[in-house]
């Protein structure tokens, strides 16, 4: 076997390189100009170094987002890997920011970097947390809204990993439907 002085100090590689983005709402600037790439990482250790270094989601100002996406995919509908896709959306009640938001977002991150969706992990583009006064949201974005086997598998695993009650129903919405909606309601393409 391999023997080296660095044994035990080697970092654990991830399947994918991931990019962490930060969005800060400034109404005086274009949406795209409020989106900032913070950093990229591709090992378990570098993930934790980053996670420990940044603010918890619950400490962000309202209007801010974190987005963790695979390297090369921008966290916007327009990206070619997103435009035919959609998102599993978990909407939190206001009071859950203090009790649940950080735990649920960390669990979402662990699903992504650990490739929790097995053979369907290929379909995952990234995840977003929106910190909002009216209620925070966490979503996993996938690349093909018509891929029902992948989308429903990802949804079931996501709901299970978040520890949501079987009574809670979460919905998957196609970005194309969200982008063209005429009111704040977007129909669910799938639910789990």
């Amino acid at each position: 076997g391999k023997l080296s002085l660095g044994e035990g100090l080697e970092k654990h590689p991830l399947e994918n390189r991931w990019a962490l983005w930060f969005f800060k709402n400034d109404r005086n600037r274009a949406w795209r100009d409020n989106l900032h790439l913070l950093t990229k990482f591709d090992t378990v250790e570098d993930f934790w170094a980053l996670y420990s270094h940044i603010q918890l989601a619950s400490k962000l100002s309202s209007g801010c987002d974190y987005a963790l996406f695979k390297d090369g995919i921008e966290p916007m509908w327009e990206d070619c890997r997103n435009k035919h896709g959609g998102r599993w959306l978990v909407s939190l009640a206001k009071q859950q920011r203090q009790s649940n938001l950080d735990r649920l977002w960390l669990e979402t991150l662990l699903c992504l970097v650990g490739e929790a969706f097995e053979e369907y992990s290929e379909e995952v583009c990234g995840a977003v947390v929106n910190v909002r006064t009216k209620g925070d949201k966490i979503a996993i974005w996938t690349s093909e809204a018509e891929n029902q086997p992948a989308v429903t598998f990802i949804g079931r695993v996501f709901k299970d990993r978040l520890g949501l009650s079987p009574k809670v129903v979460i919905g998957y919405q196609a970005h194309a439907d969200t982008a063209t909606k005429s009111n704040s309601f977007t129909k669910n393409k799938f639910v789990v």
């Binding site: 654990h12 991830l14 934790w48 650990g114 490739e115 929790a116 992990s121």
Partner: peptide, 18 residues
């Protein structure tokens, strides 16, 4: 090919290792 999968227990242990 093979996919590198880590379960949550392993990932959390890595957080706490020096």
């Amino acid at each position: 090919g093979t996919r590198i999968i880590y379960d949550r227990k392993f990932l959390l242990e890595c957080k706490n290792s020096p």
